[in-house]
Amino acid sequence: MSGILVVAELTAQGGLHKLSLETLAAAQAMDAPVSAVVFGQNAGEAAARLARYRLEKVFALDHELLAQYTADGATAALDWLIERVQPELVLFPHTYQARDYAPKLATRRGRVLVSDVIAIQKQAQAIVLRRQLFQGKLAGDYRPAPGMVFASLQAGAWRADALIPGETPIETLTPELAAAEIRQQPEAPFRESSREVDLSAAPLIVAVGRGIKEESNLELARELAGVLGAELAASRPVCDNGWLPMERQVGSSGQTVAPKLYLALGISGAIQHLVGMKGSQCIVAINKDPDAPIFEVADYGIVGDLFEVVPALIAEAAKAKS
């Protein structure tokens, strides 16, 4: 067993999921030989992109049974490669796709996957993997048992611009797969909402979370947005409740925004929300919990009850504008 194998992800359009590159950067930073693999049908273009970085090898797993992603196909193909390559560390981007197959693959190899890792520390012979617990409120250090280690890495925890360029040979392989072992039959992906609001273009956003408690309280947020001239957005539970349309949901399942101002009211700051708004120029968080993870990314914070702070804010903003 030696070296690191990074499993890159092919998007439905044949490109590389951008988190693949962050995962590659994490591997390059670890002072061990790194190879990468991409699986799919005609994964050549994605493999060529990976080959532009300094790696030992890029494996392209090509098979007609991989034309569309399935958990069974991905598991069988990667298990086949891992058996041949015997890496000591297998890294995945913690994407929705990896969530779907990586635990299965690790289980097939009798190993534990440490998921959603935010930092890797090398200690003597071993490594320690840090991940978030309790919705980002606490951090846990995990020491994997000796043997092959499987870990998936959180979006935004490593920077793709740290990648070291190079020229890497590509090896195209055809894994042994049987049609009978693939039990999922996926249909074409679709989008539900027509996206009439393009939040990504909004310069100012007031975003509401579960801390708003009731639908009628949304008026308060609406009023604040009105005074500021901001668009209204929300975290997932608010949209799930039908209080705002899904097209106003910010996060990994919703829109990604980068406004001049993102004002978060009663939003805890779960990673799936943060990935959608971290790039904002200025983040303001109003939350009653001083340990809420949203303060991790906020430039300005008000620890307090939004039902007291927001009315005062509306009054002050109106004064400043007139």
Binding site: L138, Y142, R143, A145, D299, G301
Partner: peptide, 24 residues
């Protein structure tokens, strides 16, 4: 297969400016 060795409060990487006082 993976042991949770230590649980801690997350390190803050960004310094948030906390605004203090009454709500007003």
């Amino acid at each position: 297969g993976a042991v949770l060795e230590r649980l801690s409060l997350p390190e803050r990487t960004k310094r948030t400016v906390l605004l203090e006082g009454t709500p007003e």
